[in-house]
């Protein structure tokens, strides 16, 4: 072996060592979720901690499903996330379309306001938002009939509607739409296309990348929501996964069960991430740079 090869090998070893540090907690979580409690501790201090060896079973998962209403939380999370992302893609891109490809009075002002709003972090408004949500009336489903409720708290929509419109996503759409050549819409306009038809048949088909980017960012944001649901949702019915696992963790459950729960929460995102990993990486990097 030449010196060059040795050097390359050294790099790989070094990178793998660092990779181990980054991957260890994740692998440990997944592997431990399959092991009985004693095996987790017995394997902890050797490489076996991240290897699926020994007596493996789905017992921990079974216990989690028995002790926690995890399937309800899972469907709540999925509904909240998917629903909000779909509404968000639609609503945010529509506003961005009017800002970037139509001209109207007040447009510049609205754009400036949208950009200025990006500076307000969610954390700065959760407390007043809680009061607002407690005062908004809503219609709910209780005992097989529709009832009028006096507050939005403890519902699914209180976790969705406030997060549909997002100034940062509007800005990402705006930037992308702005750079599409105007010739297309002008031609379509001459053919008598309405603005909505231009949006639907010209802009949307050309904007796959930005829709994917916003969908991924919004998905992560919604799936990982924590501070808002712990405040706005006290009951079980509308509780999503993150508060669910936190409560389970606080109950001093066994570590194997906690790891099984953590794996259940993580696996869907991990699967989506591995499927679209290239897109994920470019989205997050691009969003970071532009933001």
């Amino acid at each position: 072996m030449s010196v060059k090869h040795l050097k390359t090998l050294g790099w790989y070893l070094f990178l793998t060592g660092i990779g181990y540090v980054f991957l260890f907690p994740l692998l440990f979580m997944l592997v431990s979720s399959l092991k009985p409690e004693q095996a987790i501790f017995a394997d902890l201090y050797s490489i076996r901690a991240i290897l699926p060896v020994g007596e493996l079973s789905l017992d921990n998962y079974r216990q989690v499903f028995e002790k926690s209403n995890v399937s309800l939380y899972f469907w709540n999370s999925l509904f909240i996330t998917v629903g909000t992302v779909i509404m968000g893609l639609f609503v945010n891109s529509l506003l961005a379309f009017t800002l970037s490809r139509m001209s109207w009075r007040g447009q510049k002002l609205v754009l400036a306001v949208v950009i200025a709003l990006m500076i307000i972090p969610l954390e700065a408004i959760v407390v007043p938002l809680l009061l607002l949500a407690s005062k908004l009336p809503s219609i709910g489903w209780e005992g097989g009939m529709l009832v009028l409720k006096s507050s939005w708290l403890n519902t699914l929509h209180v976790q969705m509607l406030p997060f549909v419109a997002n100034s940062f996503f509007i800005f990402l759409f705006y930037q992308f739409f702005r750079d599409i050549p105007k010739d297309f819409d002008e031609a379509a306009e001459l053919d008598g296309a309405t603005p909505f038809q231009i949006y639907r048949h010209i802009i949307v088909p050309m904007s796959g990348p930005v829709f994917a980017t916003v969908a991924i960012l919004h998905f992560l944001l919604m799936w990982n929501q924590y501070i808002w649901p712990i405040m706005a949702v006290q009951g079980e019915d509308a509780r999503p996964l993150m508060p669910g696992i936190q409560i389970f963790f606080g109950r001093q459950s066994s570590w194997g069960e906690i790891m099984a729960y953590a794996s259940l929460v993580t696996l869907p995102v991990l699967a989506v991430f591995l499927m679209f990993q290239k897109k994920f990486v470019t989205s997050l990097a691009g969003a970071g740079i532009k933001g």
Binding site: F90, V91, N92, L94, L95, F97, T98, L99, M102, W104, V110, V114, L117, I120, A124, I125, V127, P128, L129, L131, L132, L161, P162, F163, V164, A165, S167, I170, T194, P195, F196, Y199
Partner: peptide, 24 residues
């Protein structure tokens, strides 16, 4: 069209960002 296409997002931002901010 401008009104119809821009209102949903603007309403959302106004209701759940601008109002809570001034409420705070």
């Amino acid at each position: 069209y401008v009104f119809l296409m821009s209102t949903p997002a603007l309403l959302g931002l106004f209701m759940f960002l601008v109002i809570p901010f001034f409420m705070a």
